[in-house]
Simulated scan of single mutants.
Amino acid sequence: MKVRTAVFPVAGLGTRLLPATKSMPKEMVTLIDRPLIQYAVEEVIDAGVERVVFVSARSKKALEDHFDRTPELEYQLEEAGKEDVLKDVQKLSSMCDIIYIRQKEPLGLGHAVLCAKDIVGKEPFAVILPDDIISSKEPVTGQLIKRYTQTGKSVVSLMEVPDEDTSKYGIVKLGREEDKGLFKLDGMVEKPKSNPPSNMAIIGRYILTPEVMAALETTKRGAGGEIQLTDAILDVAKSEGVYGYLFEGDRFDCGNMYGLFEAVVNFALERKDLREHAVKVIQEAAKRF
């Protein structure tokens, strides 16, 4: 069955980026010339997703405005002859169908995903955490969809992390490798305080079967007193199997200032129109410090 819907849990306050996020959603923080959320939405569209669900909260209206029409701005751009910019602005409102849902209580990632239950229905769906910006030749969402099509099971994206960082992630126990980078998962634990099953972490891209959504309905609060998506995925792993895929690409955690800075530097160096200028700026700055 085709993966038509991507769920974006975007209700968080973004405290790791304060004070920048005091009056602005963290998803609207800019990376070069686009907000973080736009990179993530473009990724799923490039992977063939047709519908995006934002599970948001109050104070997130800027997200809605960004993907809406702005006739007055479009008129000014047209009058000024800025056709390329006009096309970019108009593209935002026609990328795909976007649906907005409120998460009325901050009960965790699993609860945020569950809020989209009625829209997702009985279909497989993607879950995207837009803090994670991934630079790759093929969209990571597309990579996972291919592995879902191959296995017919839920697939989560995996990345190796330093041993000292395992307490920050959902960590998996790897089973057999069934294809290059594709592992059957024998278990997983959310943010283990000790004795992690591996150093392979779940990163913010998932393709999930309807069974995961059903499991969320009965999932009790876990780590941090929240309804954890990992717990529901683990239930499904025990009953029907779940896979992990070691994706191809470079991930940047743009939910903190270090990861955001790394992303700015790397994305600037990747772009032909910015590369020369970025190298010059970095070299000149290095001389001064």
Rank of each mutant, 00 (worst) to 15 (best):
E105V: 13
P106K: 13
T70Y: 03
L86C: 09
L92H: 10
A116Q: 03
H111A: 14
Q90D: 02
E123P: 00
G110T: 13
L77D: 04
V85H: 10
K91S: 13
Q90K: 15
K104A: 05
K117P: 00
F54G: 03
A112W: 04
I99T: 14
F54I: 11
A62M: 12
K82A: 11
E105Q: 14
I98L: 07
E123I: 09
L77H: 07
K117D: 00
S56W: 06
P106T: 07
H66N: 05
V113A: 03
S59F: 12
V55R: 10
I98K: 12
G110P: 02
D65S: 13
E123W: 02
T70A: 06
V55P: 08
D68P: 00
P124I: 06
P124S: 02
G121V: 08
K82E: 10
L63T: 09
S56K: 14
P71T: 11
L107D: 06
P124E: 01
D68Y: 09
K87C: 01
H111W: 00
D118A: 02
V113S: 03
I119W: 00
K87A: 13
K122H: 12
I98A: 08
P71V: 08
A57D: 05
K82S: 04
V85T: 14
A80H: 05
V53Y: 01
I98E: 03
V113G: 03
E105I: 13
L77G: 06
I99H: 12
E64R: 13
P124W: 08
I101C: 05
D68H: 11
L77T: 08
R69S: 06
L73M: 08
S93V: 12
D84K: 14
V55D: 04
I128R: 08
D68T: 11
